[in-house]
């Protein structure tokens, strides 16, 4: 993969609450030779507005795509929700000429036009397809041998399959493969592909917390030392809410929630400071002590 350059689309949730995901992703990508350009401007991808107005979602997504088209680079997102929305709208509008014309009528008001000339990938898809697992393995200087983790893909990185399509939603392998590339062991557990509950926050916190609790219970059952996520919302659901779930349901977890690029960065020899480990709510001290300090001696 020579000269892979992407336009990074941050979305709203990451700059709002999950900067550790952005910091660690940028560090890892730079070291893997993926060049990033910044969006000249961007707005909400549209996904949060789909429930109330499908048309609003289409316009917001198409506007972002049109701005990326002007730059002429494909989009990389860290948020699966943004990736899914941009992929979906790109495909829908390319297939439906009259809908495309209608949406372009709206974009014209801001001097923009959607043409359908750029593609969107999520970080996970980029790591799998553009960088490749072999190159990732080769970049590992501090293998996380002995570390046992669980993965949580999240829904929007996999579904709907028709629009996402790079992994099997019923038996996803990409994240597992990328985790194993760091030298860590990725454990199987019950209901791996179940929703984290984040989308229900604000509508029914009770249901959201119960979903997250169920997951954490299954992860605890297999004695995972950490849970690895690739979505800002899933991360908030587990990391920010873990203590609340423990208190609400009288449970004890203490399971740190790591962004995949944090795990990979650690294996690539980066320090926990560089990878923004200090921003995590659930302390990952044990993992840091086990690996980061051991690497420093070498």
């Amino acid at each position: 993969m020579a000269n892979s350059k992407y336009l990074i689309f941050l979305g709203c949730a990451i700059p709002y609450r999950v900067s550790s995901f952005e910091i660690s992703s940028r560090k890892v990508l730079a070291k893997l030779g993926v060049e990033l350009a910044e969006m000249p401007e961007f707005n909400c991808c549209g996904l949060p507005f789909d429930p109330v107005s499908h048309e609003t979602m289409l316009i917001l997504a198409a506007k972002n795509l049109a701005m990326a088209e002007q730059v002429g680079l494909n989009i990389l997102t860290l948020c699966p929700g943004c990736a899914g929305t941009l992929k979906k709208v790109n495909k829908i509008l390319k297939a439906d000429k009259s809908l495309k014309e209608k949406i372009n009528g709206h974009l014209k008001e801001a001097g923009l036009e959607f043409k359908g000339t750029v593609e969107t990938k999520h970080l996970l898809q980029l790591l799998k397809e553009d960088v490749g697992v072999e190159k990732i393995k080769a970049a590992v200087t501090r293998p996380l041998t002995g570390l046992k983790v669980a993965e949580h893909n999240g829904c929007h990185i996999l579904r709907p399959k028709e629009f996402i399509g790079f992994d099997d939603p019923e038996d996803p392998q990409t994240l597992k493969m990328l985790i194993e590339a760091t030298g860590a062991t990725c454990l199987d557990y019950i209901d791996e592909t179940e929703c984290c509950g984040a989308p229900s926050v604000g509508v029914s916190d009770k249901i959201a917390l119960q979903l997250a609790r169920d997951k954490l219970n299954h992860i605890k059952m297999v004695e995972a030392q950490a849970l690895v996520t690739v979505c800002p919302f899933c991360h908030i659901m587990y990391d920010t809410n873990e203590l609340r779930i423990e208190k609400t349901f009288n449970e004890v977890y203490g399971i740190p929630i790591l962004h995949y690029p944090q795990l990979l960065g650690l294996a690539m020899g980066m320090s926990p400071e560089e990878l923004a480990f200090s921003e995590l709510r659930v302390n990952a001290k044990k993992i840091v002590e086990q690996f980061a300090t051991q690497g420093a001696k070498q």
């Binding site: 941050l10 700059p15 900067s19 952005e22 910091i23 940028r26 910044e38 969006m39 000249p40 401007e41 961007f42 707005n43 507005f49 109330v52 107005s53 048309e55 609003t56 316009i59 917001l60 506007k63 709206h106 974009l107 008001e109 801001a110 923009l112």
Partner: peptide, 21 residues
């Protein structure tokens, strides 16, 4: 981190004009 790209709410409002929601 690089500066956060602008959200440009004026352009957003222009494109959403006439949307019932």
């Amino acid at each position: 981190l690089p500066p956060l790209p602008k959200g440009n709410p004026d352009a957003v409002k222009k494109t959403l004009k006439g949307v019932a929601f």
